[in-house]
Design a binder for these strands. Sequence first.
DNA 1: TAGGCTATTGTTAGGGC
DNA 2: CGCCCTAACAATAGCCT
Lengths: 233, 233
Amino acid sequence: MARKKVKLQWIMNDTARRTTYKKRVKSLMKKAMELSTLCGVEACAIVYSPYDPQPEVWPSPMEAVRVIGEFKCRPDQTKKRLDQEIYTRERVAKAKEQVVKQQKKNLRMEMENLMDQCLAGVQGLQHLNIKELSDLTWSIDDRLKAINHQMEFFHHPAPQPGATAAPVAVPVAQNTHLEVALESLENQILLDTAPMPRDSLVSVAYPGGQDMMLPGLYDNYEDPSFWGPPFFP
Amino acid sequence: MARKKVKLQWIMNDTARRTTYKKRVKSLMKKAMELSTLCGVEACAIVYSPYDPQPEVWPSPMEAVRVIGEFKCRPDQTKKRLDQEIYTRERVAKAKEQVVKQQKKNLRMEMENLMDQCLAGVQGLQHLNIKELSDLTWSIDDRLKAINHQMEFFHHPAPQPGATAAPVAVPVAQNTHLEVALESLENQILLDTAPMPRDSLVSVAYPGGQDMMLPGLYDNYEDPSFWGPPFFP
DNA sequence: TAGGCTATTGTTAGGGC
DNA sequence: CGCCCTAACAATAGCCT
């Protein structure tokens, strides 16, 4: 019995995932058939799965290809919508890349500052009194906290500034702060770009209440003034 | 409140159809999204409707085109499946055409017989006694019944033998006997052809219990022996 | 693995506004 | 038309075989 409401996320358990797939894909096709019959509309649905060499297709491979062809070849607004989508997608990708880049830059700068301070401290260690030593320790501790704060956005990945962008290829149950922020950024752009905002995008939640600041929708994310380190003198 | 279980057929009422469409297409896209998320599979869904100049597409026009392209270009079994489907479809179309053709032929022959009998009756009317007159009337009546019986398969269309095939373009609530028979024939062929019969086609019901005989799966439906008039001397 | 079962959640037809 | 509501209907998660 459906004891609990399942969360909308990738099902880890293999057999459960397969079972759910089999049930749901069948339902989906049925729903498509019902919609087409009840409302007299043309429709098609295609699902690729690792459980079958052939994709699941409704109403038939031929019909699907025909329907899609009609959709692809339409020269009017559909074409424009496609171009618009390509444009938006590129814009989102570019913005995301800039966000990640700047985030890494922040991290690197803070680590360099920390190293500088450590180096200075070590070099002048013999000349410091207890008070100065304590201050140095606290200062270094602050820098460490700042670094940790920055690193939180990357969560799991190694804190090396030169590392590639978090390659979270496998589905994860818990998104990193960076991922959440990127998603929020994408939603902002989509909302700004879309002529008619979709319902699913209207409510842009910000889980976890992180304080990573997202820029407004400006065109050049290269400008570091948008990303100025909030805690650097 | 959903007081009654709706029948799976085209909704006549315009506003109700539109409302149902709006609700169901939204649900369909949601289901597609859930399936894709839960099971980590690629999927797309496209619905054309008269209620919107643009088709409803999930997950996006671009993705849909990409997914379809992948499906279309696959050279292996998918291609074979397409060819197989084309072959089957042609076979079904040919069989259906032959059925309609023969049905019309039957109708025409019966009408000609009726006319012959009427003509003979009229010409020899003055020589007939009461008994012969009664027999003639009953005979003509039988022929009329036979014609009506044949015409039942066409139901609404004009009974002219030269008329084009029943052009039931608009959705109808009640299928004609001919349509039901043709559907049954199609299902027979699909069952016979399909390597793995689909669940939805296994139960080929024959609503109304009509007595129109469907041929077995032979290759030449032209042979009138399969369609020999059941009530001709 | 695939079906069958059922408690539970999800969908939606029909109304009202 | 679109939106909200609710009861009736449908889908399905988790078990079991």
